[in-house]
Amino acid sequence: MTIDLAYVLELVLNGLMLGLLYALIAVGLALIFGVLQIVNFAHGELMMLGSFTMALLLPLFGLSYWPSLAMAVIVTALVGAAFYQFFLSRVEQTEFERSILITLGLSMVLLYGAQYIFSATPRMVDTSWGFEGIEIGAIRMTWTRITGGAVALVAFAALYVLLKWTQLGRAMRAVAQNREAALMVGLKPRVVSRNAVTLAAGLCGLAGGALAPIQLVQPGMGQAVIFKAFALVIIAGLGNIPGAIATSLALGMLESWIGGFYDMVWQEGSVFVIMIVAIILRPEGLFQARGMRVG
């Protein structure tokens, strides 16, 4: 068997793009877990919401990509903020089970609500770019994929700046590291939590919006991604953002490679095999929860 170099490169590029979009989801999960100590089971559905917003708005905006993507981010972020305000803000730190039920509940409502309204039929989403793209030698990438990866990269850069250098982001890390100290310096944990959920939801909207023209859009798309994202966040250590980004990239790459050379089954299963191995070999990845850091 001869391996075509262009094909391998194409797999790598696609893997990177996929990994970057996974990372947006995983980072949001890590952020919410870090700040609120809540595992958000509705995270995948927030992404799905972003995809549907994109799919529905594109025709309204004459298929133009950017305004639709911006609206997908805004709509999803607002849904996240409302979800925090009405539900999550009522959950106490110690009520872990309640938080699971509430986020699972939202996940179900969004999933079946979308099925009811839009049916489960997958839909293709078209943008004004169509299938145009760039070709370098034998390698071909569509604009939607290139843009998806670029948008994710810009989002990470912005997230890094926010968490590292602004009081807004520092406050999120602060609440994640020590709630009592956060109160000592005059932070309001509820406001910080609301900001974190809104930001994480916005990242879901961005990922969902960017994925819409790349993958088929359907109500169940969040479910497929969320379990991978959980696996990623666990492999990286809960609440560990740089770790989540690194593992997401590795996973996207791995999936793309396995998908390129082996059966689909392996592609879907590989992340979970890795998660189990990672947990066994490096349990601190899993149990770091207490000493968690965001950023």
Partner: peptide, 26 residues
């Protein structure tokens, strides 16, 4: 009114500089 609680009460994985900047939050 300022309160420094009992036991360690800072942001352990942040630098001294960042801890002081968070002190300035209000």
């Amino acid at each position: 009114i300022a309160f420094v609680p009992q036991g360690r009460c800072n942001f352990p994985s942040m630098s001294v500089a960042e801890n002081l900047k968070l002190g300035c939050y209000t």
